[in-house]
Each structure stands twice: as C-alpha cells, then as structure tokens.
Amino acid sequence: MATQLPLKPVDFHLLLALVDGPLHGYALAGRMREESEGQVQMMPGNLYAVIRRLDREGLVTETGARPADNDQRRRYFALTDTGRQLLADEGRRMARMATTVRRRLLDSGVHDNEATQ
C-alpha cells in the first residue's frame, strides 16, 4: 500500500520540509514544527518510523550530498523525484480544495477576508 493523495499531515510536512534541500533528523523536525505553526511536533521515534516508511515507498532517500553544515555523525535526507512529484500533486489538490472552499463560502455570503482567516 503506497502513499496516496491526500497526504497525511505528517507526510505532507515532512516532504515539504525537504523541498529546499537535504536535512538531518533534528533539523527536519524543527522545520516541520515551524512550517506547521507548531501543529506537527516530531519526536525521534515517530520521526524515524515515518522516514523509514517514506524511504521504503521511494518518496525520501538518504543522501550522500551534504550541505554546508555537514555533520559526519548524521544521515541527511532528501526528496526523491517521486516525492517531489507527489508533493506537487498534493499542493495542486490543496489549492483546488481551497478554491472550492472560498467559492462555496462566497456563494453563501461570507466575505472573503473572513473565509480565509
């Protein structure tokens, strides 16, 4: 059973966090927390369990290409092409959903500002 759309929030934020380049586990968790506005807080157990799953599903891979803050003790993870593709698909899906929500709310008379708040 491969990962399908819609992505689970954790998977989504993990993939999203890797868009800008490879990260190690701790930095990855920090980025996920930041980008999710504190909604997704990963501790080591769940983080690596999810990484391993996404790795097995070919969405994420360990990378030898290391960024500037290279730390030999750690593994760095990067998006695979499939992962990047899936994230993009999810982004488009979410955009479509957002459009739908906004249109429906406008139809029912709610002002745009309120709807997007």
Binding site: H24, G25, Y26, A29, M43, P44, G45, L47, Y48, A49, I51, R52, R73, R74, R75
Partner: peptide, 21 residues
C-alpha cells in the same frame, strides 16, 4: 522495542536527536 530494521538503520541518528533535545 523498535523493529530491527529501523533500529539498525536509524538507531544512532535517533540517539543524536535525543542529545539535541
């Protein structure tokens, strides 16, 4: 208690993570 595969691949990284925490 974690599965062997996960433990062997990422055990050290998980400990590093813990150290940061």
């Amino acid at each position: 208690l974690y599965p062997k595969g996960l433990r062997q691949t990422y055990g050290r990284d998980m400990r590093t993570f813990l150290a940061e925490l």
